[in-house]
């Protein structure tokens, strides 16, 4: 359940921002989660509510922007989109792929009051 640890990381960031930018209530948390990151958006949603309880983000809405998995295909020398790591290049079928994007797990914005 590393999703719990990730959610604790999210709340940690929210609380640091609250201290440095002086707000007292978080109404929504917007995350950017890549398709090739270490977490599934559903798992984060499942844990977020529990971790956010009794924090400044209690009851906050969670929004997740899913970003696509991008890899460089060494065989056809182009960037391609993949849904998961074990997929071949959609244009040539090669597995010689270097992931270049879609690994991010970020707190993007907060809606605060």
């Amino acid at each position: 359940m590393h999703e719990m640890a990730l959610c604790e990381g999210i709340i940690g960031i929210v609380e640091e921002e609250a201290r440095s930018r002086s707000f007292s209530k978080v109404k929504a948390v917007c995350l950017e989660i890549g398709a090739l990151s270490h977490v599934a958006p559903e798992a984060i949603k499942f844990c977020f509510e529990a971790v956010a309880a009794r924090s400044i983000a209690q009851g906050a809405r969670l929004e997740i922007i899913a970003t696509p998995g991008i890899a460089w295909c060494m065989a056809c020398s182009q960037g391609v989109e993949i849904k998961q790591r074990c997929e071949p290049c959609p244009s040539c079928g090669s597995y010689q792929l270097q992931v270049t994007g879609g690994e991010e797990m970020r707190v993007k914005t907060l809606e605060v009051a």
Partner: peptide
């Protein structure tokens, strides 16, 4: 917190954070 104020909006604000969860 938003660093700005926009007509027609309440005091709720969107703030840019852009921080890695595992930072």
């Amino acid at each position: 917190p938003a660093g700005q104020q926009i007509a027609g909006m309440s005091s709720d604000r969107i703030i840019q954070v852009e921080r890695d969860i595992l930072g």
